[in-house]
Design a protein around this nucleic acid. Sequence first.
DNA 1: CGTGTATACCTAGTGAGACTAGGCATAGCA
DNA 2: TGCTATGCCTAGTCTCACTAGGTATACACG
Lengths: 112, 112
Amino acid sequence: MLKGHLDMIVLAALVGGPAHGYGIIQQIKRRSGGAFDLPEGTIYPTLHRLEKAGYLASHWTTAESGRKRRVYKMTRRGERALSDHRALWQRFADAIGGLFGEKARAPARTHS
Amino acid sequence: MLKGHLDMIVLAALVGGPAHGYGIIQQIKRRSGGAFDLPEGTIYPTLHRLEKAGYLASHWTTAESGRKRRVYKMTRRGERALSDHRALWQRFADAIGGLFGEKARAPARTHS
DNA sequence: CGTGTATACCTAGTGAGACTAGGCATAGCA
DNA sequence: TGCTATGCCTAGTCTCACTAGGTATACACG
């Protein structure tokens, strides 16, 4: 259902600051009110793709717990991409709204 | 990008009254402000699927122009499905809004 | 010490579904 | 007589989120 919106969602999750993959999943779940509970198999390939595209930069860290984590942070390009995607989303949502909002009209009058 | 939303879009286009495939395409284009210009290869299979699912009913007519048209109209089941899809869309749009930080939310036009 | 669970990362392959690319047919116009 | 717009149809493609598997460490419990 989020086909085409995933990049935007992941980028949006990084607006608050850098995070690692596993944390991003939880972040998205929390901030979406539980609506988006994305599996790892969705997130990790996406992060790799976004980094390859220059939207994200990553580096390895070791948490206090001793675990190794790959922390991602948005690049300036990523911020621009997010901005573009947001505009696209607005148009998309408005279009859906238009389909719902406009009611009552005569059936198909092709020749006007 | 409209993966998973297409059924809803087509059903919504028929709220104003019955229409034929070609007209539905134009209807959607107009009411979406030009955002959704769906190819025939997308619409026709969808209409067939929706009819098979019992959401639409169709019959052949001959327009004043002399052309043959297959006119679709929503069934009660279709109306219920549309209603469900709309609720789903609301949750989806709200979830995206939540990720954006409440600022950019999809316009929720609660048309009665 | 062994086992279970949560954390944390990765990738090859699948599957659903919108779309491409074709085909067929008729009306109206130049 | 073409050309364009209308009008319907379907087989196959392609994208991309997701499934299903794998590896590894920290911590708690017995």
